[in-house]
Amino acid sequence: MTSEPRLVHIVDDVPELDAVREAGDELTMVVVLDGFLDAGNAAARAAQHLVDASDGSVVATFDVDQFHDYRARRPPMSFVRDHYEAYDAPRLVVRLLRDAADTPYLLLLGPEPDNRWEAFCRAVLEVVERFGVTRVVGMGAVPMAVPHTRPIAITHHANRADLLTGESPWRGELRVPSSAQALLEVRLGEWGHPAMGFVAHIPHYLAQMDYPKASAALLEQVEIAGRLMVDLSGLRAEAEDREAEITRYLASNEEVADVVAALERQYDAFERAEEEGSSLLAADQPLPTGEEIGQQFEQFLAGLDGPTDPNEGDA
């Protein structure tokens, strides 16, 4: 009889984390799973910012072969003249990092499992209990009919009400597609481990490009919930460059600017209605449909990938 393969391999000797546990200190684990809940590449870019800011080490490795559907998400590799090389194998790992105040924390980063979600959650539980993780904080992003000229809205969620650090903009029940990251939060709650997360609302028309403004907004929430300090100056500089790029494009494309203006009016009407306690939707401000936004912004995305000068090339 063959035994089930081990799904996560945890480093046996991590004195740094053992010291944290013995001292009774708190330990945060940030979770970012690529592939589904990440419009604007916001969470993945935020996670990469954390990795770049700290010389960390891998303390746990998941057996990706047990979770990844290679035919659905084929990893890239290089073909050089007459041979294959440089295969970019997917990795699902837990890294030990340090924040700007030298506080240790963990980062679980990699592709979202395509299958065996329950087994994945149990494997993460092993990591949580081995290292004495006291809170798990997830990041994600979804496309919404919101303008980029307004503050990034964040949906707060947690498996215990006392963990919430902000009020949810939603009312009632929403039926949404599930994810491994969402299931992990549910299961950790059932197993007695606190977990929370933040989902940034990304303008529809920017969902297919990197949007560092949202990455910075997510990390601001992680700082609060995870009791961490993150230097966001570099990420905010990226966000300013991106905003300037978008502004230049809108200045030369009146139709696209009109769509953004319509979203601004709808957003402001929504905010006024919330403040006044009336309907959340303004009757005199019809919201552009996703199809209408997509049509208007095909040219927008093409323009951002090409020359930044509106007089250069085919806009």
Score class of each variant (00 low, 15 high):
residue 229 M to H: 13
residue 313 G to H: 05
residue 112 E to C: 04
residue 11 V to G: 05
residue 273 A to Q: 12
residue 147 P to Q: 01
residue 2 T to H: 14
residue 60 A to G: 04
residue 132 G to W: 00
residue 151 P to N: 10
residue 126 E to H: 09
residue 130 R to P: 03
residue 12 D to N: 13
residue 131 F to W: 04
residue 290 G to M: 09
residue 75 P to T: 08
residue 189 G to M: 07
residue 201 H to S: 14
residue 81 R to G: 05
residue 174 L to C: 06
residue 75 P to N: 10
residue 46 A to C: 08
residue 121 C to V: 08
residue 130 R to Q: 09
residue 210 D to E: 11
residue 43 A to M: 04
residue 128 V to L: 07
residue 284 D to Q: 08
residue 206 L to A: 10
residue 84 Y to Q: 12
residue 170 W to A: 09
residue 272 R to V: 13
residue 50 L to V: 06
residue 69 D to M: 07
residue 271 E to R: 15
residue 285 Q to M: 09
residue 177 P to S: 08
residue 219 L to Y: 00
residue 61 T to M: 10
residue 104 P to R: 03
residue 169 P to N: 11
residue 30 V to C: 08
residue 267 Y to T: 02
residue 205 Y to Q: 12
residue 116 R to G: 06
residue 3 S to W: 04
residue 52 D to A: 15
residue 96 L to P: 00
residue 92 L to C: 07
residue 279 S to P: 00
residue 52 D to L: 13
residue 235 L to M: 13
residue 94 V to R: 02
residue 178 S to K: 04
residue 263 L to T: 00
residue 95 R to H: 14
residue 176 V to P: 03
residue 277 G to S: 10
residue 137 V to P: 00
residue 238 E to R: 15
residue 287 L to F: 01
residue 73 R to W: 14
residue 273 A to Y: 04
residue 50 L to G: 05
residue 152 I to Q: 02
residue 179 S to H: 04
residue 268 D to W: 01
residue 217 A to P: 03
residue 7 L to A: 11
residue 126 E to V: 05
residue 130 R to L: 04
residue 164 L to D: 07
residue 59 V to N: 00
residue 284 D to S: 14
residue 150 R to I: 00
residue 207 A to L: 01
residue 165 T to Q: 15
residue 284 D to N: 13
residue 149 T to R: 04
residue 111 P to T: 06
residue 85 E to D: 13
residue 301 L to A: 12
residue 153 A to I: 02
residue 11 V to K: 14
residue 185 E to D: 09
residue 30 V to I: 14
residue 292 E to F: 00
residue 279 S to Y: 07
residue 140 G to N: 02
residue 162 D to G: 05
residue 8 V to P: 01
residue 75 P to M: 09
residue 189 G to P: 06
residue 109 L to H: 11
residue 139 M to N: 03
residue 84 Y to G: 05
residue 192 G to K: 05
